[in-house]
Design a binder for these strands. Sequence first.
RNA 1: GCGGCCAUCGUUCAAUGGUAGGACAGUGGAUUGUGGUUCCACGAACGAGGGUUCGAUUCCCUCUGGCCGCCCCA
Length: 505
Amino acid sequence: MPKSAKNPAAAKPAEKPAKPAEKPGEEAPKPKRTAPAPNLLRGMKDILPGDQKYWALVRNAADHLAATFGFDRVDTPILEETALFVRGVGKQTDIVEKEMFSFVDQGGESMTLRPELTAPLARAYINHGMWNHPQPIKWYTWGQVFRHERPQAGRYRQFTQAGLDVFGDRHPVIDANLIFAAHTLFKDVGLDAIVLVNSIGDAASREQFKEQLVAYYRSKRSQICENCKKRLQRNPMRVLDCKEEGCVAVKAEAPQIVDFLNEESKNHFIRVLEYLDELEVPYQLQPHLVRGLDYYSHTVFEVVGSDDAEKHGQVALAAGGRYDALIETLGGQPTAACGFSWGIERVILRLKEKQVSVPDINQPEVFVAQLGEPARRKTLALFNALRKDGVQVAESFSRDALKQQLEIANRLGVRYTVILGQKEVLDGTALIRDMDSGIQEIVDFKKCAAELKRKLAMPAPPKAAPPAPPQEEEPLLAEEPLLKEEEPEAVEEEGKKGKKKKGDE
RNA sequence: GCGGCCAUCGUUCAAUGGUAGGACAGUGGAUUGUGGUUCCACGAACGAGGGUUCGAUUCCCUCUGGCCGCCCCA
């Protein structure tokens, strides 16, 4: 209203074809929104087109990695029995104690939106009797997981994990090769990463260690923080993560788990490290690295950005380890297992922070523009012909003005625009405009698709290369004759009008 | 789950106890069928609810959501 008061010339509240959709009668056409906008649930995120290229990159890298390392894709349901996670992940863990989206359904059954991918995968292994197949079983999985946490950047309540897991093989080379795969993954998407690795041994070693650790920290009780005192009772190994000054000092002298590994555990770990050396994976031993999930044993590792290794607030991009006890815990045959998973959103966040260049997806190569109804009809078919030929085509069929269509073509960054107007329809021709040079040629409409394919097959000239010194001459030579051979009326844009070539009549 | 900071057009950033302005993006123009630059115009926001007040986008409370730290984790 105030607008119209100030600016009577402009505002005419009466007819806006779009807005008053239904209600015809009534008096004041309220331009205001009536219903409040719906909110996104906490920790949930829409992935809009602008972000899809990151997802495509990571997804392609993961698919490729899995394929080349010989992992088969498996998808499990998002919803599982609550008991699966209580048994698999561990009753005492934070994930199970306070972070699960659990509910009782109409049938009275307790179910949970999966908070991680490993337990469901192990469940599937058991359910389908996978131990009857040749071992090891190598599985690749990708999907949404849910944790009821306080959201932050790179931390959501619904997020995406992917994982690589190997079942039925206890050989240390499995651990090492998985770590190698993890490192390769990040390299493939353009991130420098480093692996932090440790061994927490088998259950027996770990119990012994915990005892000693608790005894040691008790002796330093006066120097550690309140939080760590609690940790000693609940989850002793966590004290090693504490960043409090006093605790860090105490930690320096603390017993290290490697000293408590029995022969077998120690041996396993050493061999993993040897393989890592062989694979030239950059890794750091982290004597105090532990994991929050109950099922881990022996090798545990995290992958972090290489310049983050020392940073104290660093978050892992990927994490995993060996979990030989899990399948048995869930009721299957004793089956060794090892795997890791990574958080897609965190990887993408990192890609953005590092400004890693990510290829566009759906980049159209050709735009079809039309002028007049007959042309519009013909371009419909042309569009489809090109599309079926595997050319990325774009259009704006509903627009009339050629100018607008070219604007769109330009914005989309296509290499060529096909222009069809009244004249071309009558002549059975089409214009192919090179968007970089502005040169247009007339081609037979029937040969238009073939001609475009031929042009697209040639390497694109360097995009507006900065003051490039003497470029190679080869490409230029290669292109020119091609244009001439066909004698295609290379009509140059503006300057041509006057001295149009005679060939027109 | 705990503590702190924050919430204005699609995006980003202003101003204000008397209903908000710019930039970018968008849409439409600058004579007939030609983009990138330029110029003009237009559309577009105070997250929700309550309170104080003559009057709240502005002050207070609650909710919702975001960010930071903690817990924990990918």
